[in-house]
Amino acid sequence: MNKVNIIIILLICSQFLNTGEVNAGEVNVYSARKEALIKPILDKFTEDTGIEVNLITGKADTFIKRIEVEGKNSPADLLLTVDAARLVRAKDKGLFQATNSKILNKAIPVHLRDIDNQWYGLSLRSRVIVYNPNKVRANELINYIDLASKKWKSRICVRSSSNIYNQSLVASIISHHGIEQAEIWASGLVGNFARAPKGGDRDQIKAVAVGVCDVAIVNNYYLAGMLDSSQEKEITAAKKVKLFWPDQRGNGAHVNISGAGVLTHAKNKDEAILLLEYLVSDKAQRWYSDINYEYPVITNVYDHSVLKEWGIFKMDNLALSLLGKYNTDAVKLMDRIGWK
């Protein structure tokens, strides 16, 4: 290693170190939505408004930690997550600031946004039940609570308790029924598992399709994604199962959101708000259903065939902030009753 080599290395590094100064007409986004599921609409935003969007994708929790650590100099303006609990957590840590956007407040229903206007739901997904029609009749299914009853012994597939969607589902049960009832329910549910939790939601759907289990709890867009897949075997598997909207006579199907909030130390607050408003426009809301089979937070702007076929459902109007409030309790509860 001589000095020349070091200089060469430094030169290469200098290219890397150029993070670019923060320019006007720019917004920096930390996104827990995967690149493929957010970049296209951000590009459209840039096209329509001329505002550049800089993006890092990753996991919500690590972003929360990063923003905390970066403090007042954090370059991020907007944090985008794919569940409500993380938004609540970010708010509790004081990472978001309030935005007074009439457009946002008008477009988004109250239960899908923060009471202090710190975060907003942008798209909606529901945790539904899928079942094998050869083994289960639709009228046997009622709601989540019923899945803990004995008749489902060894018939249920669901992914692990590390998964936020399960944590949120349990949190919603805690919100509705209290922690003790929730624990009794969850231990009944775990007792009905056909196998130890493993894999993702698509794996649970496939497991139902091949007969590992008779019902599974999954997010609706995974099933839609399989039905709309370019791969034959995905479609075949998806066609073997049917979707059931749980609890339609009670509280309604459990929903979660992907959402975002403007960060306390945002340098481009105006641009960030503009982006948020853009994301609840009809055009963007339609795009969510087209690209990822999610429901819009504003009513009736989707026209994707799969979603249309599933029809209108009754959703649980529980305040989503409760999902965040009970998240830790939910995890501890699942640990206690042995939900792997």
């Binding site: 690149e35 993006l55 890092i56 994708t57 996991k59 994604g225």
Partner: peptide, 23 residues
């Protein structure tokens, strides 16, 4: 890489993970 990379910068590993994670 997922946590520390700067804006608009991706690697093969990140891309692979994101797609696989979306199943």
């Amino acid at each position: 890489t997922l946590i520390l990379r700067p804006f608009n910068f991706n690697t093969l590993a990140v891309r692979t993970f994101e797609l696989a994670n979306e199943e």
